[in-house]
């Protein structure tokens, strides 16, 4: 089903019933000072989805992702993770979510392994599962040899890999990523896509922002395009793209539609 422009979130079927892992219900965010970053966003991300979130710089992608992960406070609308309100029970919602920011600002005073153990402790991951996942993903992303080194000595790509490994430690049901492919080498990007596929096969959902439209078109089964805080279109990738390319569709949409949040 393809949705163009504004559509209301009048659906009263519960998220659980529809197997929705992330639901934005009329979500809006206005920053102090009056800037309306996101305006009435309605979006459902279901189990098994690899959902790409596309928009120009300052469109409201990071704001939406941060609000979904409980990092950013909001007053208008509702965001549910597996039926749990992020606003009302943020801790329960965060327990089944993982977030990878665009700029991995990690604790530089820790070593890689200390950081992973810290995250493991916070999420209460049992030692056996934790060690197995660290070994698996560190080997996969070729970071095993660097886990004993301080994070401060890591390159941007290594920090990004460490952030991704830490996000996978508690086997989240929902993985939210902000520009995850920036800074990753081609092999790591390829591996990350494999991880996405594995996770979705196991019933998790991936929601990520990207500017790399080719990747989004090939990787995502669903796509949403946002401009100036307003959703322009969302739905299955093949329905949106049709016979064209995502790049053409994106440029056509952002040039043709107004959608200014400030209007």
């Amino acid at each position: 089903m393809l949705h163009y422009g504004r559509f209301c979130c009048a659906c009263r079927v519960t998220s659980k019933e529809m197997n929705i892992l992330l639901e934005f219900r009329n979500f809006s965010k206005t920053y102090k000072g009056g800037k309306r970053a996101v305006d009435n966003l309605c979006l459902n991300i279901e189990a098994g989805d690899i959902y790409g979130f596309i928009g120009h710089n300052g469109a409201g992608k990071t704001t939406s992702l941060k609000a979904a992960c409980g990092i950013l406070d909001f007053t208008e609308g509702e965001i549910l993770i597996d039926g749990i309100s992020v606003k009302e029970d943020p801790v329960a919602a965060k327990k089944i979510t993982a977030y990878v920011p665009d700029n991995p600002d990690l604790y530089e005073f820790m070593t890689g392994i200390q950081y992973l153990n810290f995250i493991g402790d916070i999420f209460g991951v049992a030692a056996d599962a934790r060690n197995a996942r660290i070994e698996k993903y560190a080997a996969m992303f070729e970071l095993s040899g660097d886990l004993g080194a301080p994070v401060s000595s890591y390159s941007h790509g290594m920090k990004q890999k460490l952030a991704i490994i830490s996000a996978l430690l508690h086997a989240p049901r929902l993985l939210v990523l902000d520009e995850p492919f920036v800074g990753l080498d081609p092999k790591a990007s390829h591996l990350l896509k494999q991880v996405f596929a594995e996770m979705c096969g196991a019933g998790a959902a991936i929601f990520f922002s990207t500017h790399v439209l080719e990747v989004a078109q090939k990787l995502c089964n669903k796509i949403a395009i946002i401009k100036n805080g307003k959703l322009l279109v969302s739905g299955r990738t093949e329905d949106i793209v049709g016979d064209s390319s995502l790049e053409d569709v994106f440029l056509e949409l952002v040039d043709a539609k107004g959608g200014d949040a400030d209007e």
């Binding site: 070593t111 890689g112 392994i113 153990n117 810290f118 493991g120 402790d121 916070i122 209460g124 991951v125 049992a126 030692a127 934790r130 060690n131 660290i134 040899g145 886990l147 004993g148 080194a149 301080p150 401060s152 000595s153």
Partner: peptide
């Protein structure tokens, strides 16, 4: 920085506050 190539996997600690 002292860089250690070897590291030990640690057991889970006493919870969020402790971490």
């Amino acid at each position: 920085r002292a860089v250690r190539s070897k590291y030990k996997m640690s057991a889970a600690s006493g919870g969020a506050v402790s971490a």
